[in-house]
Amino acid sequence: MNSMTHDPVAPLRREWQRHTPAQRISRWMVWLVCVAAVVWAVRSIDIIPEFLADAPEQMADMLVRMWPPDIAHYYPAVHNAMIETLHIATLGTVFCFVLAIPLALMAARNVCTIKPLNVLAQLGLVASRSVNSLVWALLFVAIFGPGAAAGVFAIAFRSVGFVGKLLAEALEETNPGPREALRAAGAPWGAELLKGVWPQVQPAFWGIALFRWDINVRESAVLGLVGAGGIGLVLDDAINFFQWERVATVLLAILVVVLLAEIVVTRIRARLI
């Protein structure tokens, strides 16, 4: 009787499904949310249909006007602005460490054991990261007036959050052994950090600095659009006067510098780490 109802190959006939019903429903929900968000955005976004219709034609027109690039314009106007941009990026990266190192030391829970200070430092880092570099540039243009000084400070304040966060993480990952050994030998607090912690975070430190410098070269290229100096100013002028051949030159110059910066950073990183 039992052998009648019990079918030995029943498990093999069972239809296998990868997900449980609950999983399937939740996957569908995720897709539904994604599609609903896109549909909502498409339906309610303020896009003028005529603009959309002739967009390809207009883009082609602009590209044709850009050709050939006005290479003769490169020296001296674009060249000098490019050098200024590189100075802004480099100085901004250097100055950001003035704020980033103390904040990172404060934010690392193994270096600074005072809880409220940790939270305070984290808050400062988050605030720096949340405000975009162009917005920082707007603020500093209002403070310092137009010019490269505003650009340097914008880059520096923007970088603090990024650099400080990564540096704090590197500090938290350090091995406490060398510090304890130095402390046991009677080393003061500064020596403990310099000889026990710094050698451990040094590779990470240079890696972060180079990585941020690379990002800053890109970002400083646009600061001029809000009057904070550099190549963006030249670009903005050329666009406003519809000198598309010059625009093409500036864009090419930016492209080359950004790619070169990336190559340089990759090379140095490979040698350092």
């Binding site: 976004i45 303020d46 896009i47 003028i48 603009f51 959309l52 002739d54 967009a55 207009q58 883009m59 027109d61 602009m62 162009l134 890109r218 970002e219 290229a221 646009v222 659009l225 670009l235 666009i239 864009l251 930016i254 492209l255 950004v258 790619l259």
Partner: peptide, 26 residues
Amino acid sequence: VCRSLHYVIVAILFVKAIGFGALAGT
């Protein structure tokens, strides 16, 4: 090339080519 040009520069170009508004930003 897509990655090297800063999105604000790309946005300016699109604004000039296809007009002000959300389309250029998108």
